[in-house]
Amino acid sequence: MNSSPTNYAMVRRLILKDWYLNRWMIIGSVPAGLASLAIILTGKQVAFLISIILLCMVIIGVGAQLAMATTINERKEQTLAFIMSLPVSWREYTAAKILANLIIFLIPWLAITAGALGILLLPGATHGLIPFTAIMAVEMLVTTCLIIAAGVITESQAWLTVAILCSSLGLNVLGYVFAHTHGISPQMWGTSVHWTATACTILLAEFLAAALVLAFTFFVQSRKTDFL
């Protein structure tokens, strides 16, 4: 729907705009995530599980809330007309939405993931959990990409809710499957890190899935004819 080259300065402005409007939610999520991590320090297996559940809630919650605020609310609160009245093409709008959501999400995600891996690297910690933790962290990134895609493509609260539910369910199911996968399960509770071929393949597949979801979002957006 637009033949002009991408205006990267405009994309940057739109990303900064979304950051400005959602900054308190993001800043607030980091201490919440780190507090969840602190539970692990008690050293008990139950505490680890509780901590993982809380971390998942914080990370998925941030991704979902962000997608809701930047895509669904933009249409619901009729600010989309204001943005689209500016010299913005669908390509710039889509790129800005995806990048804004990803970049802003990556702030708490990186902080919490680094914190989790850092704790697991402490002397005496269950180092064997590191591959599984990394896989689950990247899985949450994929899940967030799915939620972002649903928000950008559908701009519908109902569809976004479906995406959030499916993603949460999928995360639990995949977590269970990965935890019982032959290449991961035997080493999980050991004291040394084993980056098995299975673990590496799963990680690679997750990154590929995230890239495919985002590429699909661009493809669908490019075929849209109406933006208001």
């Binding site: 729907m1 637009n2 002009s4 009729q78 600010t79 007309a81 204001f82 009245s85 010299p87």
Partner: peptide, 28 residues
């Protein structure tokens, strides 16, 4: 719509169903 970004540089658009961001100030 192919050249909309170039055209919109010289268009001022106000619509009854257009809203500004409630959490931001007019100065922003």
């Amino acid at each position: 719509p192919a050249e909309q970004t170039a055209a919109k540089l010289d268009i001022g658009y106000v619509s009854e169903d257009m809203r500004l961001y409630g959490a931001a100030t007019l100065a922003w």
